[in-house]
Simulated assay, not measured.
Amino acid sequence: MQFISVVSVPVSDQVRARDFYLDKLGFRLLAESTFGDELRWIQVGIPGAQTSLTLVNWFDEMPPGSLRGLVIDCEDLEKEYQALTERGVTFLGPPSRQPGGLFAILSDPDGNLISLRQTGS
């Protein structure tokens, strides 16, 4: 094994989710195409990162908004928190010190929760 390449994020509306991840969070569109019986593959990622996200609506076992525990590292969490808040991203609260670093948890349009983390200091 080498690394995790793609994590599936369960969403109800793939286009709305794509726009949120691109416009609000600053991800880049890596792939968008249809496959199978009119299914859609939308893959987004952080510039320079190995792991990307695919915005899925075809797994019955993964209802929209059920993602928890995804952590994205940041160099300056306070700066990221401020910039994302100004872009309309909803956080559960301000950054707080937790075991493992400084964290701030954001919610996407479906209620998937993503933790931003700054380690060190």
Rank of each mutant, 00 (worst) to 15 (best):
G65S: 02
Q2Y: 03
V89D: 09
G93E: 13
P95Y: 10
Q2D: 05
E61H: 07
L22K: 09
D13P: 12
G69R: 03
I42A: 01
E80G: 00
P64M: 01
Q50K: 04
A31V: 03
E38L: 00
F27H: 12
D13C: 09
P64S: 02
T51R: 00
D76G: 02
L67Q: 08
V6Y: 11
R40P: 02
G69D: 04
L70A: 05
P47R: 01
Q82K: 14
L67S: 03
R68N: 03
A49R: 04
E80I: 09
M1T: 08
V44Q: 06
L29V: 06
G65P: 09
S33F: 11
M1L: 05
W58V: 01
I72E: 06
A83W: 09
K24G: 02
F91R: 14
L70P: 10
L55R: 01
A17S: 15
T90H: 13
R87W: 10
P10K: 04
I46M: 03
F35D: 11
I4H: 07
F35K: 05
V7M: 12
E86F: 07
V44M: 05
V89S: 07
L29H: 12
V44P: 02
F3E: 08
E75L: 05
T90N: 11
G69K: 04
S5R: 15
T54N: 04
W41P: 03
M1A: 13
Q43V: 01
R18K: 15
V71D: 05
I72L: 12
G88P: 14
Q14Y: 14
P64R: 00
S8F: 12
A83I: 13
L77V: 06
Q14D: 14
V89W: 13
R16C: 08
F91C: 09
A49C: 02
K79D: 08
N57G: 03
P94M: 09
E75N: 07
A83N: 14
R18N: 04
G48I: 04
F35Y: 15
T34P: 04
L84S: 08
I72T: 05
I46A: 00
G88D: 10
E86P: 12
A83E: 15
E32F: 07
L25C: 10
D37R: 05
D19Y: 12
L77F: 07
G88L: 12
F91D: 11
R97C: 01
E32A: 11
E78W: 07
Q43H: 04
T90P: 08
L22F: 12
F27Y: 15
V56T: 06
C74K: 10
V71G: 05
Q82A: 12
S12P: 06
P64T: 03
S5F: 06
L22Q: 13
E75C: 02
F20K: 11
V71Y: 07
G36E: 08
V89M: 10
V71H: 05
T54P: 00
V56H: 01
P10H: 09
I46Y: 01
R97S: 09
L92A: 05
S8K: 13
Q43R: 09
L39T: 04
E78P: 05
L25G: 11
S52R: 01
R28W: 14
W41T: 00
M1I: 03
F27M: 15
P63L: 02
D73G: 14
V11G: 07
V7K: 06
P10V: 08
M62S: 02
L53Y: 02
W41H: 07
D60S: 06
V15N: 14
G48K: 02
Q50S: 03
G69Y: 03
C74V: 10
